[in-house]
Simulated scan of single mutants.
Amino acid sequence: MRQGASLTDVYAKAQLPQDDAASETTMAELLADYVDLKRPVEMGFSRRVAQSVGDMAMGAGLPQSVCEQLMRAALMYRLGQVSVSNAVLNAATVLPPTEREEVRLIPYWTERMLHSAPAFDEERRLASFAFERLDGSGFYRGAKAAIIPMSSRILQVAIIVTSQRYDGQPETAIHARLHNQVQAGQLDAQAVACVRSGERRSQSQAPKPLMHLAAREQQVLEQLSRGHSNKVIARQLGLSPKTVGTYVENLYRKLEVSSRAAAVLRAMDLGLLAIS
């Protein structure tokens, strides 16, 4: 999609009319799923971030309205990605300055696009600070602590934690990164404490899955959630691609879906995948 695409364009691509009667959260979820399609390997990632943010915020005792706004902001904070080419988003090498600037403008385009959706005014404001840092080293504004709201500071921490876990980073490394960024004046210590406290409480209250999967099925499902092909999953788990294919078909049958992306989203809804 071209740079500067409007939210109307995204609504049209997502087949969601602007006067849709669905709730604001449902609209945000549909937009998030559409954005994730830019990089199929990340399908479901925006929902993971949103669920993590919601769990952390509720566990920390924040008001329900604030929790809901944070979740919607987390669903849409990458909306501006639709204005960046797939070649840039999927680049395997260090980006040159001009293309790096395209990435840094993602929150700018997110804010611009959400201007046409008044119902998301507060979410737009929170999401626009998602990549800022308290010392002014973030983007796109280079904003400093004085103008970054507390809710956005919590969102920043939750995004880092969820992204690092999604990439398979150990908890010790995640903790060290948060500590270092607090010490460097980039992240808010209170926001980090809020996220950590919320995590502990939400984990202790987490519901049990509504469906049981065999151990191998669960392993294959977790690999699917990372966007891996059958060949990669086979190599990771020491199985043959044909055996992996059988497990995938079994998952489709149990989850009553017909695609990998749908399987991941359905598994998240059922509590079969950790939203982290």
Results as ranks from 00 to 15, higher is better:
53 V>F: 10
210 L>K: 13
102 E>D: 13
113 M>T: 06
251 L>K: 02
265 L>F: 00
163 S>C: 11
201 R>A: 08
176 A>Q: 13
77 Y>I: 02
85 S>Q: 12
264 V>Y: 01
152 S>C: 06
80 G>H: 04
235 R>Q: 15
96 P>G: 06
228 H>S: 04
12 A>C: 10
244 V>M: 05
268 M>L: 15
96 P>I: 07
130 A>L: 08
53 V>M: 14
244 V>W: 03
231 K>L: 01
142 G>E: 07
189 A>L: 11
200 R>G: 00
9 D>G: 00
172 T>W: 14
165 R>E: 09
39 R>G: 02
112 R>M: 04
75 L>F: 10
237 L>W: 05
148 I>C: 03
127 A>G: 13
88 V>W: 11
12 A>F: 10
61 G>Q: 09
100 R>L: 03
25 T>R: 15
257 V>I: 11
54 G>E: 08
58 M>L: 12
213 L>M: 12
259 S>R: 11
92 A>S: 12
49 V>A: 04
75 L>P: 05
60 A>Y: 04
264 V>D: 01
138 G>T: 01
67 C>A: 12
259 S>N: 11
29 E>Q: 13
85 S>G: 14
38 K>F: 00
109 W>L: 02
172 T>D: 15
63 P>Y: 03
3 Q>P: 15
138 G>R: 01
154 I>V: 13
119 A>N: 00
102 E>N: 08
188 D>I: 06
149 P>W: 01
200 R>L: 11
102 E>Q: 14
181 Q>N: 12
56 M>P: 04
180 N>D: 15
128 S>H: 10
68 E>S: 13
122 E>M: 09
101 E>P: 03
12 A>G: 00
66 V>S: 07
242 K>G: 05
268 M>K: 12
37 L>F: 11
90 N>L: 14
68 E>Y: 06
147 I>E: 14
208 K>R: 14
81 Q>M: 13
129 F>L: 05
72 R>N: 09
228 H>E: 06
171 E>D: 14
108 Y>E: 12
241 P>W: 05
65 S>I: 13
7 L>K: 08
26 T>E: 15
214 A>T: 14
230 N>D: 07
258 S>Y: 00
86 N>L: 09
203 Q>L: 15
90 N>F: 00
15 Q>T: 12
9 D>Y: 07
82 V>M: 03
73 A>H: 02
212 H>M: 12
185 G>M: 08
19 D>H: 14
270 L>S: 05
273 L>Y: 03
7 L>I: 15
232 V>G: 04
169 Q>G: 06
9 D>W: 05
167 D>E: 15
165 R>Y: 12
62 L>E: 04
82 V>S: 01
201 R>F: 04
128 S>K: 08
69 Q>C: 07
222 E>F: 02
179 H>Q: 14
86 N>P: 07
12 A>S: 14
46 S>R: 09
189 A>Q: 14
111 E>R: 10
131 F>K: 08
177 R>A: 04
105 L>A: 10
205 Q>Y: 04
55 D>H: 09
87 A>Q: 15
54 G>M: 11
150 M>T: 00
267 A>D: 02
68 E>M: 12
215 A>F: 10
18 Q>V: 11
24 E>V: 12
201 R>Y: 10
65 S>E: 11
119 A>Q: 14
112 R>I: 02
96 P>V: 03
45 F>N: 05
141 R>P: 03
95 L>C: 08
271 G>R: 04
51 Q>V: 09
